[in-house]
């Protein structure tokens, strides 16, 4: 498979918009033409060749190396292809992406997979606040696709999530799934306080829940839900390790809520 490699030469002086660097957009361009592409850099523009060492062959995956937190918009609105990022993922990685894959070796800033519609965003490190949340002005957050963060995520993960899957290998900050509409979130580390406030539907699987769940969630009892093994098999398509961890939910304690918002959402806790 062909691969185009762009290595950041020096830390950008201001915010650097990397949204134009997408597989489909660069596939038909020569290396020279790619070097002449303009990127928004702070209040000005700069050519790709001035900022990046450009090597490899366009037409396949794009590898972005040496990315810093000053960068943003990687894979924004991407409709296919594959981007591999190393260093940092910048802000709003995978925003409104509809298809394709982004793999990050490192940590991401805030707004990871904001308004995601499809595809896979995979982060080997941590991610900041509002993972899978709503883009400014939008009613709903993520509407499809899969986000996997191996490390921790910040506050308000899955805010107003509409559909899709978020898996967190580490801890999550407070206000997870705030006003969640539907979809599924699994957290294998410790979950912060105030999970699921305003949650209308959807499923949270919390391996290590906060000491106290919100008072607007009611216990329903312990059950073997056939959804869990089917879900685990689906997760196994991305990561067998997480699929194995879901075995802890083979018998799950089910809490329904938020009862102040219809009570059709659920929190599943493992029964040891």
């Amino acid at each position: 498979m062909t691969r185009l490699e762009l290595t950041l030469s020096a830390a950008p002086a201001g915010a650097l918009d990397l949204s134009p660097l997408q597989p489909a957009a660069l596939a038909a361009l020569s290396l020279e033409r790619i070097r002449r592409l303009k990127l928004h850099h702070g209040t000005r523009t700069a050519s790709v060749g001035d900022l990046f060492a450009v090597n490899g062959e366009p037409g396949g995956a794009i590898a972005l190396r040496g990315i810093t937190p000053a960068c943003f918009g990687i894979g924004r609105g991407m409709a296919g292809g594959r981007i591999e990022v190393s260093g940092h993922g910048g802000q709003e990685l995978g925003r409104e992406m509809s298809a394709g894959e982004i793999h990050l070796r490192g940590s991401a800033g805030d707004g990871l997979a904001l308004g995601l519609r499809g595809g896979l965003v995979r982060v080997k490190g941590n991610a900041g606040a509002r993972v899978g949340g709503a883009v400014p002005g939008a009613v709903h957050g993520m509407k499809g696709g899969t986000v996997i963060v191996d490390g921790d995520i910040g506050e308000r993960g899955g805010e107003r999530l509409r559909r899709g899957l978020i898996i967190v290998g580490g801890d999550c900050g407070p206000y997870l799934a705030d006003r969640m509409v539907a979809g599924t979130i699994a957290v294998f580390g410790a979950a912060g306080n105030n999970v699921g406030l305003g949650m209308r539907r959807g499923t949270l699987l919390l391996a290590h829940p906060p000491e106290v769940l919100p008072t607007t969630f009611n216990p329903c009892g312990n059950f073997e839900l056939m959804f869990v093994p089917v879900f685990a098999r689906h997760v196994g398509e991305f990561d067998r390790n997480y699929a194995r961890k879901l075995a802890a939910f083979a018998t799950a304690q089910r809490w329904c809520g938020d009862m102040a918002h219809g009570g059709k959402g659920e929190i599943l806790l493992p029964v040891s």
């Binding site: 539907a182 539907r201 499923t203 959804f227 089917v230 689906h234 059709k264 659920e266």
Partner: peptide
Amino acid sequence: HQIAKKLGTRRFWR
């Protein structure tokens, strides 16, 4: 009280 779950391209009802 039914719950929809879309996993990949497949949709399930609980």
